[in-house]
Amino acid sequence: MTSLVPSFDRYQRQMGLPGWGRDAQERLRHSSVLVAGLGGLGSAVATNLVLAGVGRLRICDADTVDVTNLNRQFLHKEGSIGSRKASSAMDTLASLNSGVEIEPVSSCIDAGNVAEIAGGMSIIVDCLDNFEGRYVLNRWAVEAGIPLVHGAVWGLEGRVTFMAPPRTPCLACIFPNAPPAGSVPVLGAASCAIGSLQAMEAVKYIVGQGRLLEGRMLIFDGATMRFCELELRRNSQCPVCGRVGHGKNRLPGGSGKASSV
């Protein structure tokens, strides 16, 4: 698709960030990101990545838009109720930046299709609303050696971490067991905040700037406006990533620093 706006002018303000410049923008342009889940988190993640100018964005969600989504899922509009979320999101995202290649996928991620959906991506951003799908995505990301940005929300609270074993734990190290999915209360400002932080991690990784949330989980509580950080450790007995070598530095960026793709 040909962009209606000259390709670099629109990114002037972020290219002016110290250490970014045209090289960073080229890295973004050559990157591909999977956004798994197009709810509250996915709305913020996909919007930020499209505005930042990633080259290819694969967006995946099997659901259709429901009226109860509209308090937070700003990719979808009142007129989208009943439509596929992937299709509704594609329309909104394409209108924001015609220079980004957007690939909508209307599927529920499972062990049988995860390789097809997540394959070939530079990084995965997990915005799903259930642990069943999150565990599938986590396992595949570990086996494929693709980094994954985890985010989750409940109420006014949310969490973010960057996973890339063996440098970090995987989801199963942190939460080896999880309760079944259920409908949870969420304020749009909370999912928007956490989704924006997930997008920040993905962009930092792609561009190779900053310090990623590797081995750290950031917790934001909007009720108290407090951020806190937990130190995460790998589980050497983890059934998912336990066999991935300890101590190896698979990411090329060096200790704790974001890497290029």
Partner: peptide, 10 residues
Amino acid sequence: VSLIIPIAGG
């Protein structure tokens, strides 16, 4: 002390 339980809201 932080009590951490899994949350999955998206």
